[in-house]
Write a protein that binds this DNA or RNA. Structure first.
Lengths: 229, 229
DNA sequence: TTTTGAAAAGTTGTAGGATGATTGGACTTA
DNA sequence: TAAGTCCAATCATCCTACAACTTTTCAAAA
């Protein structure tokens, strides 16, 4: 097989450089980029070339431009933006079902592959859940709950699963929070996933899966009930 | 709350129009777009504006431009391209694990929600599998197998799950084919998912899940074995 | 002092023209 | 027929100019 002779256009080179600067954190979310005039000089390209590069990243959702004001970093992950848009086009129920699929697989893999660091992170976040529940702070509780779930997914040691889970859960967050806060019957203690952590600790795959199944099915029923009100 | 005063830039308007033309099938994959000069006139914008729009879609993966030749439609789904890129950055095993997650959920939902049309489509594709296996044609068998899986996912009646499954499976396809063709121990009859279809037909959720579990675990072992050679 | 409003400076948006680089096809020639 | 040349079409890049919008500045008015 011959190597494909493919020269990158100037625009694409600039795009790649900007993407790198964002992914590496050199330009953080919220940061304002230098003005076009200055970027032209720094990248040593014409204004058209620079603008085409910026426009590509604006459409991808990484940047946002406002006439007269400037260009700011909006997101650091094009994949995250794409998934975000997809979630917005779907119903909450559909998205929850996908999340359940990922969570079940993650629980299973975590039960097999978790190491001491993973267990430590999960234990710590469950402590936070407990603290928040004792204080009766719903917001704080949900935030700690998310940290626990993310820690579990991370313990699956599957980067793709992790990214998918994160970018699907993120846009769901506000909806979930809304629903939970409105739920008069919300029960903290039930929501603290001691059993799940124990199952993963003991590497009991079946117990981990069945816990996730019941937990998310309850969750689904709760949402359905609230939505029907 | 006040309404956000937000005018779409000319570039964004052109982008949206082109996206529509592609999604609606007016410009199909492989089609060549009119030259810039003509598109300028049709959209009634300047060359810069048009080029910025096209560049955005090129970077999104919907279009491809080649100097001296022209611009052609490369894909009809920006989400598909984004997912494709993500899969390429991941290992086969990671991707398979995600696919398993989706497949398990799909089997469960399909067992609950499948209607007569779904069952018909699945039965038909399983017939194709059988025919191909009798002929001993691996390629054809795998193609029919994919159709069966897609039919099952469709029977879950979750559009998001369907899109995710499709765009994750697609780039896996060539790798799987390669591996299967190379597998001397490849056994057709084992791969025909009669039991799964029966479980879904009888709406036996547990049986459907457990079948998918064993089937994909076997598949995983097979891949691992072959990769270790 | 505080508020208002106009001017100025800075930034992105759009337009049009000019030239270079590459491609693919038509044409020529051996 | 086959190889090479030329030419027209097309995208790539650069340039200048002006319009539209935002923020800042600052002076006048209340």
């Amino acid at each position: 097989m011959l190597k494909k002779t493919e020269r990158l256009s100037l625009v694409e080179q600039v795009v790649i450089q900007i993407e790198h600067l964002i992914e590496s954190g050199h330009w953080q979310i919220g940061d304002q980029l230098p003005a076009e005039m200055q970027l032209m000089k720094e990248f040593d390209v014409s204004r058209n070339t620079l603008r085409e590069a910026i426009r590509a990243l604006v459409h991808a959702g990484l940047l946002e431009t406002k006439q007269g004001s400037g260009t700011v970093v909006k997101s650091s992950s094009a994949f995250g933006v794409a998934l975000h848009r997809q979630v917005e086009k779907s119903s909450i129920m559909e998205t929850l079902e996908v999340r359940l699929a990922l969570e079940r697989e993650a629980a299973q893999l975590a039960a097999i592959r978790r190491n001491d660091l993973d267990l430590e992170a999960m234990t710590e976040s469950i402590q936070l859940c407990k603290l928040a529940s004792e204080k009766g702070d719903v917001q704080e509780f949900l935030q700690a709950d998310i940290i626990f779930h993310k820690a579990m997914v991370k313990a699956s040691h599957n980067k793709m699963l992790e990214r998918l889970y994160e970018h699907i859960t993120e846009p769901l967050q506000s909806s979930i929070e809304e629903i939970m806060v409105a739920d008069a019957y919300f029960n903290y203690s039930e929501e603290i996933h001691y059993e799940l952590l124990e199952a993963i600790k003991k590497q009991d795959v079946q117990a981990a899966i069945s816990y996730v199944n019941t937990y998310i099915n309850d969750f689904r029923k709760k949402i359905k009930r609230i939505q029907e009100d």
